[in-house]
Design a binder for these strands. Structure first.
Length: 376
DNA sequence: AAACCGGGGCA
DNA sequence: TGCCCAGGTTT
């Protein structure tokens, strides 16, 4: 749910230089007009449909990738009603290749809500726009400012970087406290009430352009920046420290035992459940400890003596949220043809040379690749 | 390999 | 209400 006035806290006087706060918008607008981007396909229109479509596509996707998709979408769906009426498959097919497919589903749903519940008209405030599927606070503000001249601020990753550097905002922007402070700051520097719609658009576009061009993550081009003389990061050489990086949290270590069950040159792979880690991929049978793994091996026909298996080289795989230590155990058996008949697609014996034809998690593939030479 | 990313779902 | 995730790309 969108919070109208974000934190209900005023920017305390003296937190930032008053001159910089007051001059920020006019200087950004002047810079955008001189040095910003002006020829993107979704600029120079005030059609909320076209602006909305571009903003959704631009979430997590760069401009050059979006451009051809944007053109195809508009050609096929010139209006929000046309998009709303389209079969889901058509929408998904046109989106194919852009990634983040929940965006496409939300896009379609949003078009239907606008058509069915808003008479085909997009709402004109960020708050109302953010009620729609796939539109959050920042995207809502972007659409409202470009399409309706609303003096509302965006706050995406680019803008957070610019504000953190220019104003010297400390702390990790992913932290709620810091993000709230940035919303307050961003709201306090939007163009004044006298600003024209064109100035409001240039301002929002300027925030995007500055973050995307001069003030990028890697090495900002401070020499060309309109705020170089006031920028805290530039003055202190802390461009690389601002904004503060996500605090490294110690990722949890997990450990799993994997059964490399071999019959000749074939290894047994199990199909994983459709959701969760490696959902739907083919992988080795797993157990939480060595004893449990031995039981699984016996269930697949290994003798008591052989079930513990031969330890292979352990390997570590890093996920976003945890590290996984894999302890492989090699067990050789004679495959059970009857069980294979009855297995219902739950497992398969696959010659090592053919595992590339199966969807196998990268670390498991690596493990199995290591087995090919010596054993054959 | 690690950092980054707006919105949505969920505790 | 705040935290974390999914599913990608960039560095």
């Amino acid at each position: 749910m969108y919070k109208t006035s974000s934190p209900k806290v005023q920017l305390p006087a003296g937190t930032y230089p008053a001159g910089l706060l007051a001059s920020f918008a006019p200087r950004l607008i002047a810079w955008q007009r001189e040095h910003g981007r002006h020829d993107l396909p979704w600029q120079n229109t005030r059609d909320p449909y076209r602006i909305w479509l571009s903003e959704i596509m631009l979430q997590q996707t760069q401009v050059s990738t979006v451009i051809p998709y944007y053109a195809r979408f508009l050609e096929r769906f010139p209006t929000v009603e046309a998009l709303a009426a389209a079969p889901s498959d058509d929408v998904m097919a046109l989106w194919a290749g852009l990634g983040y497919y929940t965006r496409a589903r939300n896009l379609h749903r949003c078009a239907q809500v606008v058509t069915d519940e808003h008479g085909g008209q997009f709402p004109s405030t960020g708050e109302a726009l953010a009620e729609l599927p796939g539109i959050g606070r920042s995207t809502g503000a972007a659409i409202a400012s470009f399409a309706f001249g609303a003096r509302e601020t965006i706050l995406d990753g680019n803008v957070k970087r610019v504000l953190a550097r220019v104003f010297g905002v400390e702390g990790f922007p992913g932290e709620k406290r810091v993000e709230n402070a940035m919303w307050t700051l961003a709201e306090s520097i939007v163009p004044g009430a006298a600003a024209s719609d064109a100035e409001v658009s240039a301002y929002t576009q300027g925030l995007m352009d500055l973050g995307a061009t001069l003030c990028g993550r890697g090495k900002p081009d401070c020499a060309r920046c309109p705020f170089a003389a006031d920028c805290v990061a530039n003055a202190t050489g802390r461009q690389r420290e601002l904004p503060a990086a996500r605090p490294k949290k110690v990722v949890p270590q997990r450990r799993t035992w994997m059964l490399v069950l071999m019959d000749g040159d074939a290894v047994m792979l199990e199909k994983r459940p459709p959701s969760g880690i490696w959902g739907g991929l083919w992988s080795l049978p797993e157990a939480a400890d060595e004893a449990a793994l031995a039981e699984r091996a016996q269930a697949y026909g290994a003798s008591d003596a052989a079930a513990k298996g031969i330890p292979l080289m352990p390997l570590t795989h890093t996920f976003t949220h945890f590290k996984l230590d894999i302890e492989p155990r090699l067990v050789e058996v004679m495959r059970d043809a009857a069980a294979l008949e009855a297995n219902d697609g739950a497992f398969a014996w696959v010659p090592l040379a053919q595992i590339d034809a199966y969807g196998v998690p990268a670390p498991v593939r690596k493990l199995l690749d290591g087995l090919r030479g010596p054993l054959l």
